[in-house]
């Protein structure tokens, strides 16, 4: 029974089946499966998808489809972890989002998916996120990394605003900041005081590991 649920959940993620992933996550909770084991299986599944994307066997719609399925199951399992007080192992906690005024989600979603696959705990805030929302989330989740995306030249300066706000709230030194997106360059990242920049999603994962020394 346990393996049936766990294998089913992995399959649902790999087959991009959002509904099935959510249902199996609920069943896992009902059947009192170890939530850490379930989480681990989900991470394995998303890693397989991420690796296939990296090899060029899978494409963006597949990656995002798998991410959607993962997202459907994740809150259910996280809730269970919290309830049982189990201790979740992760490389670190990431808060991610696309900055205010910008509604482009693709790059950010790619990075979040691959970070999850790598073993980070990722809180994807979505798009059009205001500085105060980022700050609030960093505080709430006790994040190790903030990952911000901006596709448009007009919205890139918004990343600077977030960093300034973090300084004002005294949170800047608690968190490593990585930035990316079409409008961002290495120089810009340095200029606004980010800790790192990478133009590609797989590169962003390596960067995240480097930033927290793992």
């Amino acid at each position: 029974m346990d393996t049936e649920i766990i294998e089913g959940l992995k399959k649902a993620i790999k087959e991009y089946d959002t509904e099935k992933a959510a249902n199996l996550a609920k069943r896992a909770v009902e059947e009192k499966l170890d939530p850490l084991k379930v989480l681990n299986a989900m991470t394995v599944a998303i890693r397989e998808v991420g690796d296939a994307f990296g090899r060029g066997d899978l494409w963006l719609p597949d990656l995002v489809g798998a991410a959607d399925a993962l997202q459907a199951a994740m809150p259910i399992i996280e809730e269970e972890i919290k309830r049982t007080g189990a201790k979740r192992e992760s490389l670190g906690t990431v808060v991610a989002g696309t900055v205010f005024g910008d509604i482009h989600s693709i790059g950010k979603t790619m990075v979040c998916t691959l970070l999850t696959a790598e073993g980070f705990k990722v809180h994807d805030l979505g798009v059009n996120i205001k500085a105060e929302q980022f700050v609030e989330a960093i505080d709430k989740y006790n994040a190790d990394i903030l990952a911000m995306s901006a596709l448009m030249t007009m919205t890139a300066p918004e990343q600077k605003k977030v960093i300034e706000r973090l300084k004002k709230e005294g949170l800047r030194d608690k968190v490593k900041i990585m930035v990316g997106g079409g409008a961002i360059t290495e120089d810009f990242a340095r200029e606004i005081g980010a800790d790192g920049y990478d133009p590609t999603a797989p590169g962003a994962v390596k960067l995240a590991r480097k930033l927290i020394g793992k």
């Binding site: 719609p61 995002v64 489809g65 991410a67 989600s105 979505g126």
Partner: peptide, 8 residues
Amino acid sequence: PGHYLGKK
């Protein structure tokens, strides 16, 4: 915020 990328 609807999006098509993840759709079947």
